[in-house]
Nucleic acid binder design. Structure first.
Lengths: 138, 138
DNA sequence: GTAACTGCAAAATATTTGCATCCTT
DNA sequence: AAGGATGCAAATATTTTGCAGTTAC
């Protein structure tokens, strides 16, 4: 039994060609992918709309999470820790290097809780730190 | 004599209506604004294109910086060094309502410090919380 | 006066939605 | 067989570009 298929099943999703292929891409690349990367790497085998819907579904199910970037695009990456449906949250901090523009998932740094003013009801929190990465600091 | 005009001049930019007004907006709001907020708050006095170009110019000149969010929107906020006159350094948490899409500056909620892994050298940190605001929660 | 800036129109790009058909279970 | 997933078409939304006219200096 294929491990990727299990992931889909565990999330209550049908195992389809597009989902298998896109999930495989994430495991192969072991990094963050943009929507465009996925289209490119699948040779347009799937409709653009399917890619949108697949990514959205994966995010909802906690299979992948979104990484904010400054260039008006969203990167997606596998949730490495146990993200669970419903309260999966991309709860680690992201770091964007000002020089090389790379985005890093700081998997071990969790977004701290903050107390919000009366009336605000939080669903998700994101924290992005910018600065210089290991490489560019030298 | 106007402080805002000085900022523009110091960056080598002509002092124009749109730039003055948009810069003023940032100082008035003392927080992050999305492109849409700016269009709304200027009563569409300026062309949408002008807003795009003005924001881009301000980013290039280091007057404002971009705050990435996971919902494919970018917030813009004054850079710290230009915020010297106010007591507020732009280090408060921002809240975006999922329903009405408004952005709130939670001035009293400061972005907590986080410890980064070895090698990362932070310059600025942003935290964006999404969920439902007071109004929309009802 | 000249270079820089803006507004308009339109192109290019990105995202969402409805619906008929096909596939997974 | 039934519900979910996909593809296509088209509607929306967002961002960029070219150019002519205007404004700041």
């Amino acid at each position: 039994m294929n491990a990727h298929n299990d992931i889909l099943k565990k999330s209550g999703l049908s195992v389809t060609e597009s989902r298998k292929k896109i999930l495989e891409l994430f495991f192969d690349s072991d990094g963050a992918l943009a929507h465009a990367d996925i289209e490119k790497n699948t040779d347009a085998a799937f409709d653009r709309v399917t890619v949108y819907r697949t990514l959205q579904t994966f995010v909802e199910k906690g299979i992948i999470h979104q990484i904010p970037t400054t260039d008006n695009s969203i990167l997606y990456a596998l949730c490495k820790h146990n993200c669970q449906q419903g309260h999966h949250h991309d709860n680690h901090v992201h770091f964007i290097c000002n020089k090389c523009d790379k985005t890093f998932c700081l998997d071990d740094v969790t977004v701290p809780e903050v107390k919000l003013p009366q009336g605000f009801s939080p669903a998700q929190a994101a924290m992005v730190v910018t600065g210089l990465c290991e490489e560019c600091k030298l």
